[in-house]
C-alpha cells in the first residue's frame, strides 16, 4: 500500500491538465505508471475517491484530481462516493 504514490498520481492529475487528459484516455494504464498495489490501481483507475480517502489520501488532492477528470459539474458524484461506506 502506498498513500504516497496515490498522492503523487492525484497531484499530477489535479495540477496538470495534460496528466488529467492522459488519465481520462486510459485510467488503468495511467495507474500502472505508479508504485501502487493492485487494489490501489483499481480504485485510482475508477477515481473512487471514497476508497482512496479511506486509505488516507489527502482530500484536497482527491477533490482537485476528481474535478480535473470529471469536471465541477460532477461534484454530486464526488460527494456520493465520499459518503458511501466501504
Amino acid at each position: 500500500m502506498s498513500t504516497n504514490a496515490l498522492e503523487k498520481a492525484l497531484w499530477l492529475i489535479g495540477t496538470n491538465p495534460a496528466e488529467a487528459a492522459r488519465f481520462r484516455d486510459n485510467p488503468r494504464g495511467y495507474a500502472d505508471g505508479f508504485r501502487l498495489d493492485e487494489a490501489e490501481k483499481a480504485i485510482m483507475a475508477a477515481m473512487n475517491v471514497g476508497a482512496m480517502a479511506r486509505r488516507d489520501a489527502n482530500t484536497l488532492l482527491l477533490m482537485a484530481a476528481f474535478i480535473a477528470v470529471r469536471g465541477p459539474q460532477a461534484m454530486a458524484d464526488y460527494m456520493q462516493s465520499m459518503n458511501t461506506p466501504a
Binding site: N4, K8, W11, L12
Partner: peptide, 9 residues
C-alpha cells in the same frame, strides 16, 4: 497552500 502549488515531492 492547498496541496497544489507544492506537491508530494
Amino acid at each position: 497552500d492547498h496541496y497544489a502549488l507544492f506537491g508530494p515531492h
